[in-house]
Design a protein around this nucleic acid. Structure first.
Lengths: 131, 131
DNA sequence: CGTAATCCTTCCAGTCACGAGAAGGTCAAG
DNA sequence: CTTGACCTTCTCGTGACTGGAAGGATTACG
């Protein structure tokens, strides 16, 4: 398989696939013409990577997941720990976003949003001193 | 004021302040020795920027907010529109994170997490085809 | 057989918002 | 006069790609 085929079948852009090879996530063979020659196993790995990335795992987490995936002796506890760590990270990010959202939401609510220049959003950002 | 003073009083690292000057968000004066000489107005802008960034606005959004802040003829509607756009962006991001979280949460729940190699998280990532 | 379109390759630069660290100038205290 | 704390500019690195250029390979068509 050439890169365009795996790109279509894995759903990843060709650029991304080249990048994944560059950083050592996959190691496709090479044909006599220099073209990458992907095996089914490469395609599986790429699909795996696509899904892991889609769930928000970082590249380095994906690397570890892939290593566990290939290790027939792995303990599922290791995988679970990684996933739970990631869940916790997401929880933190969501909480941060919600906090920002709540603050900004209040400011927006108190802003008339008309042609006049008075704007509680700007004064809020300028002073933070509420009350 | 030298950079360390504004850094302390604005809560921003000195590096960040230099960066903000480089990209034109602030324009502090310069002393004869080449040191930046910050006015109170620079300090105010930096504090403003710090809070806007803290609410998740991008640098370019901050630039526009700062322009509106300095424009005594602004319409509060413009500010509100910007803020509402940002609120919508955050909403999208939160939704994405929650979707990932939900999916991963299910996988984690179905994983025994023991010493055995069988792991629904990995098979989920590998196949996506559930059922 | 020629050629045009579509592949493929590598390499370089850019993104965003800084942070790390180096090399060197300036200033205040002892 | 030296020490230490400041300040300056400079370059490089981050994460995870994306865009584009320059050039070679293959395939389709006439």
């Amino acid at each position: 398989m050439n890169i365009k085929d795996v790109a279509e079948r894995s759903g990843l852009p060709a650029k991304t696939i080249r990048y994944y090879e560059e950083i050592g996530l996959i190691r496709p063979l090479r044909g006599a013409n220099g073209y990458r020659a992907f095996r089914e196993s490469d395609l599986h790995k790429l699909a795996f990577l696509g899904r892991a990335r889609g769930l928000g795992f970082t590249i380095e987490e994906c690397r570890r997941l892939l290593a566990l995936y290939e290790d027939r002796e792995r303990a599922s506890a290791d995988v679970k720990a990684l996933a739970e760590k990631h869940l916790a990270d997401m929880e933190v990010k969501i909480a941060e976003l919600r906090a920002m959202q709540a603050t900004l939401c209040e400011l927006v609510a108190s802003c008339a949003g008309d042609h006049r220049p008075d704007c509680p959003i700007l004064t809020g950002l300028a002073g933070a001193g509420c009350c």
